[in-house]
Design a protein around this nucleic acid. Structure first.
Length: 891
DNA sequence: GGGATCACG
DNA sequence: ACGTACGTGATCCCG
């Protein structure tokens, strides 16, 4: 018969280990959970590996122990347990209770004494005993039935010691190990031992004499004058140290094995706690059913409306309050695809769903609803409302009072998340699990569309959504107020939704003929370059494959390897630039790369996105992607259309105004980020420079290079420009040296010179990093918040990244805030004045208005006015403007 | 689906 | 000694 197995754990030791091994994880309430999480990870692993019938976790009990009575200085000078860790003890004990795992503490004794007593008791009963700890002292407990597991670096690694393993490692028996500690002492417990005796000497002595007692009986034999002297001098201390180090094995415990028998955990209670602590990986191990049962149920009461009359009756009763709504579309493109219906919920009433038939039916039903959408007294609430507005615009319906969007609100609260779907938010803010579209429709080849789903299913689906949006509204708004972001939400992000929807709806006209012409031009160049490259390298290969190109360049042609990537040779432009002149093929490859990029991304990539009827592209402007508050653009990305090279800039010739009656007016902020820096740092010299309309890069050059202003060369100016960029990005000498291809020493000098000149900028950089360290986040001028957990990382690279982020985010983010305000004001003003001109694009510091030719002067003046006065800073904001028939022309 | 590359502010 | 500039998106290759 197999021996019964018991696992005994030193809870204090293991929780300490876990706490120090893991980064400071917190749940969303701010509760530190790292120690508990690490402990449980280990516990699960041990239970899994050893499958014990009996388990107990021992803790130290507060207050003095018998050791303190024997020796007042015991554990003196030890650092206080940090509060972040202290609060995790009751948390852990709570988990153990819910797991039905026994835990124990006993006044006057430490955890190791309890474990010692228990383990010896079990050993005499011939049980297999496994003791788990982070403390080597426990090795004295090892015997033929007792094994000791000691944590190694990395936490989940445990080293197992039985009698043999111990002897292999220390050449000592467990009993001798106590004496070793008596000789060596222990700094962390403030046990003195014999000064000058360390592990090596101690082991040597004990191998010969086996115990401290025996050493002193034979003290005359000891070789080594000094050692002998020390031993004699510290005789009492040695015996006392041994006594302190000896784990007590007769604590007066009332031991009943039945008490520590491992029982089944209370699943639902445990799940509740794991949910609170956000231990996702542990939750995943539970049965699906138990998880499901633990979830909060969501109201899905919904009435399907069958006719326009029914719809009309309901809509008629809506005059003020909250209107939560969501359209169902048969596809991805709300500007094109069929609208299947709409679900809505008025205040806390039940949900309604009504499906739309043909175009005529759709229009009629939307017309009935338009009185709600256009009623300023009714607060519109939804999730990703921009997509719904596209539908309304498509049917000529305006919308007022866009009050709350859970997508945007979720983003504002935590801008670094990947996504903010209702399912994710429901999971994050409530204990609710819901279906998303993928769960409903499937994915890949078997993906269904909504028109293959029964109307009852759709109605349930949408009712769930509406109810979750309603619940989210409450908690997200509370949080937003707590973060002081109400103004940002109400006056910037919510009004912006409609502006972005309109930009997307308006679109940007493409000159198809010009596009095709340019495509052919690029194609010819590519063909020629391909031939030349094959010729120069002596064989045909796929030039687009960095792997194949690497083989040609660095193996066949034996060019020097400048840089490697994870997967092989680096062949990027930086590397190729350094190889220029070493082989004729390099120049051709650089040209080839450039033209292929232009053609594949900006010609071929654009074509499928053009609406064939209108020749327009309708880029999607995304409000919830960037961590800094900028917006992003996709399908196509209109924020990275080439400009830096003439060849690339030609692409802009295909972006034209929609007809002869319109032109493009392009307005961009000059140096907005440096101006923001001047404002938030308050640096008088920087502020003055902008007030004086100074050439900022030239000015920086004269300061950084310590030359008279008249002696600034164009090379100096362009380098100073890089320094200014570096400052905004959260400067590092390494980054600057790479960018300018100069030594780090030199770049460090430039930076030092800069910061010497602009001492308040230097202060800002230091202050903001400290703020981020203290608060865990930084803010923009308008209270947009970004959490920077990286700044507390123990990894240098990660931490440095956090510091640069802390410096850059308030600058980039404030600039983003400012242009958002400008966009809202411009949009409103164009509308108020009933102008035909429309805002169609934003590129971070630049706006493009498709302007009616009769309105050009008016638009230019209102644009300039509204952009420059979007916000009052202690430096002026200035805007440059250009007009053209194409985007190429606006220069 | 991730890595490399390169387009923009 | 450590080794990266901040923020994005699209395309291509390749496992």
């Amino acid at each position: 018969m197999k021996n019964r197995k018991v696992v005994l754990i030193d809870g204090n030791s293991l929780l300490h280990r876990a706490y120090h091994a893991l980064p400071p994880l917190k749940n969303k309430e701010g509760l530190f959970t790292n120690g508990v999480y690490g402990f449980m990870t280990m516990l699960y692993k041990i239970l899994d590996d050893y499958k014990p019938e009996y388990v107990s976790v021992a803790f130290d009990k507060k207050g003095p122990t018998f050791r303190h009575e024997e020796y007042k200085e015991y554990k003196a000078g030890r650092k206080k347990t940090p509060d972040d860790l202290k609060m995790q003890f009751p948390m852990l004990k709570d988990i153990l209770d819910r797991m039905n795992i026994h835990w124990i503490e006993f006044a006057g004794y430490e955890a190791d004494d309890i474990v010692g007593t228990f383990s010896k008791h079990c050993s005499t009963k011939n049980m297999d005993v496994i003791v788990v700890t982070g403390d080597k002292d426990y090795l004295q407990l090892v015997d033929k039935n007792i094994k000791v597991l000691i944590t190694k670096k990395g936490m989940t690694n445990l080293e197992e010691y039985d009698e043999q393993a111990m002897f292999d490692r220390y050449s000592l028996t467990p009993d001798e190990f106590v004496d070793l500690k008596g000789l060596m002492g222990d700094k962390s417990d403030n046990i003195p031992g014999v000064p000058g005796v360390g592990e090596k000497t101690g082991i040597k002595l004990l191998k010969k004499y086996n115990s401290i007692e025996n050493i002193y009986e034979n003290i005359d034999e000891i070789s080594g004058k000094k050692l002998k002297e020390r031993l004699i001098e510290n005789r009492n201390q040695a015996f006392m140290s041994k006594m302190l180090a000896k784990i007590v094995t007769n604590v007066p415990l009332d031991i009943d094995l039945e008490d520590i028998k491992k029982e089944e955990p209370n699943q639902s209670e445990l799940l509740e706690l794991y949910t609170q602590f956000e231990f996702k990986s542990f939750i995943d191990k539970f049965d699906k059913e138990i998880i499901q049962d633990s979830k909060e149920k969501i109201d899905t009461e919904v009435e399907i409306l069958d006719s326009k009359d029914e719809l009309y009756k309901i809509v008629n009763g809506i005059d003020k309050g909250n209107f939560i709504f969501k359209f169902i579309v048969n596809g991805e493109n709300n500007l094109k695809d069929k609208i299947l219906g709409v679900g809505f919920k008025y205040n806390d009433d039940k949900s309604y769903y009504i499906s739309f038939g043909d175009e005529k039916d759709t229009k009629e039903k939307l017309n009935i609803l338009s009185s709600v959408f256009q009623n300023d007294k009714i607060a519109k609430i939804g999730h990703d409302i921009k997509e719904d507005i596209l539908i309304l615009f498509r049917y000529g319906i305006d919308i007022y009072n866009v009050f709350f969007d859970s997508l945007v609100a979720g983003y504002l609260l935590q801008a670094s998340q990947k996504e903010y779907s209702l399912k994710t938010l429901a999971d994050e803010y409530f204990n609710i699990s819901m279906q998303n579209e993928e769960d409903l429709l499937g994915k890949g080849r078997n993906k269904k569309s909504f028109d293959e789903i029964s109307i009852d299913t759709i109605a349930d689906f949408i009712a769930t959504k509406l109810n979750i949006i309603n619940k989210l509204k409450k908690v997200l708004l509370e949080k937003i107020e707590e973060y002081d972001m109400k103004d940002l939400l109400e006056n910037i992000e919510m009004p912006l939704i409609k502006v972005l929807a309109d930009m997307q709806y308006q679109g940007f006209k493409i000159d198809i003929e010009k596009l095709k012409e340019l495509g052919l031009e690029f194609e010819n160049q590519i063909n020629n370059l391909t031939e030349e490259i094959y010729d120069l390298s002596g064989e045909e290969f796929n030039i687009n494959s960095p792997k194949q190109l690497g083989v040609i360049l660095f193996e066949k042609l034996e060019l020097p390897v400048i840089k490697k990537t994870k997967t092989g040779y680096s062949t990027n432009a930086e590397v190729l630039d350094k190889l220029l002149g070493k082989h004729d093929v390099i120049e051709k490859i650089l040209q080839y790369r450039q033209i292929v990029k232009l053609k594949s991304t900006y010609i071929d990539g654009l074509i499928p996105l053009i609406n064939k009827d209108t020749n327009k592209v309708h880029s999607s402007f995304n409000q919830t992607i960037t961590t800094t508050g900028r917006i992003s653009s996709t399908n196509p990305n209109l924020q990275n259309i080439p400009i830096k090279t003439e060849e690339g800039r030609k692409i802009r010739k295909v972006f034209v105004s929609k007809d002869k009656e319109h032109k493009l007016v392009d307005a961009d902020y000059s140096q907005i980020e440096l101006r923001v820096l001047a404002h938030i740092s308050g640096d008088p010299k920087l502020i003055e420079a902008f007030e004086n309309k100074d050439d900022i890069h030239a000015k920086t050059a004269s300061e950084v290079f310590e030359v008279e202003r008249k002696d600034v060369t164009s090379l100096m100016r362009s380098r100073a420009k890089a320094v200014n960029f570096g400052i905004v990005y959260g400067i590092s000498d390494y980054g600057l040296s790479r960018d300018l291809n100069i030594s780090r020493k030199e770049s460090k000098k430039y930076i030092d010179n800069y910061l010497k000149n602009y001492s308040l900028v230097k202060n800002y950089m230091e202050d903001i990093v400290n703020i981020a360290k203290k608060d865990g986040y930084v803010k923009t001028l308008l209270n947009r918040r970004r959490f920077i957990p990286e700044i507390k990382s123990r990894n240098y690279n990660v931490r440095s990244f956090g510091e640069r982020t802390a410096m850059n985010t308030p600058i980039q983010g404030t600039a983003a805030d400012i242009i958002k305000i400008a966009m809202i004001n411009v949009y409103r003003e164009l509308k108020n004045r009933d102008l035909k001109s429309k805002l169609i694009l934003q590129i971070h510091d630049e706006l493009i208005i498709e302007t009616h030719i009769d309105e050009i002067e008016e638009v230019k003046s209102l644009l300039k006015e509204l952009m420059e006065n979007a916000i009052k800073l202690n430096v002026p904001l200035t805007v440059d403007m250009n007009v053209g028939n194409s985007w190429y022309g606006t220069k």
